[in-house]
Design a protein around this nucleic acid. Sequence first.
DNA 1: TTTAGCACTCGAAATATTCGAGTGCTAATC
DNA 2: GATTAGCACTCGAATATTTCGAGTGCTAAA
Lengths: 349, 349
Amino acid sequence: MELDQRKLRILQAIIDDYILTAAPVGSRTISKRADFNISSATIRNEMSDLEEMGYLEQPHTSAGRVPSNKAYRLYVNRIMQRAQLNDEERKIIRSYFFQRIDQVEGLVRQTATALSDITKYTAMVLPPQLNTVRIRHVQIVQINHERALLVLVTDTGMLRDVMLRLPEGMSGRDVERFSNRLNFILKDMRLDQLAIDEVQLLSEEMNEQRQFFQTVLDSLEQQMRSNAQKVELSGATNILFYPEYNNMEKAKSFLAALNTEGTLYQMLKRASKLEFSISIGDENEAPELSDCSIVTATYRMGSEPMGSFGVIGPTRMHYNRMLSILEYMRLSLSEALAGLIERDGDNKV
Amino acid sequence: MELDQRKLRILQAIIDDYILTAAPVGSRTISKRADFNISSATIRNEMSDLEEMGYLEQPHTSAGRVPSNKAYRLYVNRIMQRAQLNDEERKIIRSYFFQRIDQVEGLVRQTATALSDITKYTAMVLPPQLNTVRIRHVQIVQINHERALLVLVTDTGMLRDVMLRLPEGMSGRDVERFSNRLNFILKDMRLDQLAIDEVQLLSEEMNEQRQFFQTVLDSLEQQMRSNAQKVELSGATNILFYPEYNNMEKAKSFLAALNTEGTLYQMLKRASKLEFSISIGDENEAPELSDCSIVTATYRMGSEPMGSFGVIGPTRMHYNRMLSILEYMRLSLSEALAGLIERDGDNKV
DNA sequence: TTTAGCACTCGAAATATTCGAGTGCTAATC
DNA sequence: GATTAGCACTCGAATATTTCGAGTGCTAAA
């Protein structure tokens, strides 16, 4: 059977209606629409065909039809047209980024809030995976005789700290000297290269403190790794407002899936390789999310992808609207990020 | 009417049963209990009295009885006996604090996780309100020609940072000098006294950079204030497993209340003035939480209260168990905190 | 190929029925 | 006077029944 122009139009009408109402769509609903001049009987025949082709499903004999995941996929790939945001909407999005935000963490959080506020879905943001970031400054501040805090400032203005246990018998003077030496060695080093030979080589110079140096590097690296895997979530409970989650079991399992360590991180990490990604129903890796859809976009700094962000909601999602929102928002986000970080040009002090 | 011994025993039995089953308790259930030798008819009479006194409520004529908030209050104040944790339970609690945690934020998070895991309620932790903390070290690290990061290390090993916009024409040399001067002035200062006269006086010395100094202090102070108001939550969705929240509307409004900025913070802040606090139903300030109960404990460092933490769950809460768990856990927490911070004795380097 | 017409289907909502846990009251008993 | 066996009564939860109508598929005519 062929998927001709009319079938496509009907399918689109059904999907549009279903996305709006979440109720099975009947033949009459479609035939009544002003832009169709076809009787409901004809629509019925077409619908029957569409069902046979796997694009529609019938919850029960005497109900209307519901789009299948295959239909959403077709819709996304071939039917849907990009929605235009109007000025009002753009303004609202921008307004979230207007306020004074001066740390990356704050920007990430604000983005998540904006996205979930605007879309009414659950928003998630993978923070910038700044692995090419360079170390601007390292300092060890002694806290007491056995502890010290290693503070690291990157050229993007981000801060990392690691609590250190000092080797016995290390004096305040030693710590200071060590700190200076460490700063000299690590300065301008890329964060993802701490484990590399060159550094090891340099460490040769540190003779007696060699062991300690190694420990410091190790804990630093470990901290970097673990810290990066957080995903900022917002509006997790928005899902409760959609009728398909108006049932405790589903709601519970959805919320549980969000709380599962790593799931979202994995997804967003993978999505960072694409400009946009749309994953519908059981296309999702996580089986708990097999009746959700996820739409993401990747944001950049300059030409380099920094991370991705997106929404997660019911499969009857406003796909086209999401793409427009994400597209616009990633501009705002990239801009804000660039404004925050400003690595280019005059960053040599 | 008088609340004699027998009435108390019956009330306790009803409460115990209700806490366990969440179902209205009938007279027979009580009279069948081995330790009662009273017929159900007698129990009925007593129950009728208890209802008249406001300790019991009847969902409808032919149902059993449910304890009222007044009953829980009585239970907490007069009836309940402290539960003893067994070794197994203590071990489990301790195990959460065994792993290497070396930052206050991590400790706070871990405490919340432990508490919600163990109790199956929603856990919340107010991070240490370290307002008597002293500044150990301040440094300004320049990021580019117009931005710099102020990094502040406290004597508790906590880090705070503020992004600064440099005044025009301030050279790298200037920044360095300013940084040193700032460190000299602020070192050993208490965080909650940044706005105080003495500091203002000292700032006199800073002649041309006076204005900038003021700006720095302001942003620092503002950051301190805003940063402290976060409450660590864990297990927010645990509530969904209790039958009283097996209804979307209630679940939604509960989750919404948790997300409302400030509600929990206010509560915990207030609770920090007491060793333990129990707030039942509409004793809660927030009307959205008027069918929850909240049990909190305050943890200390030395003799000084640092913050409070606790659980929020249905009014039929295991009050005595909660108190025991919180009591034990605040020991672990206080210890871990002290181990982390170690301000006493040899902290002069 | 389209469509009017009609019998048919089936779930949702409304209504009725059954069931039993639990009550309150009374009268007998301790 | 306090306790209790006994019994009629209550009322919601669970289950069954009915009603209703949106929607279907099929047929025959246009």
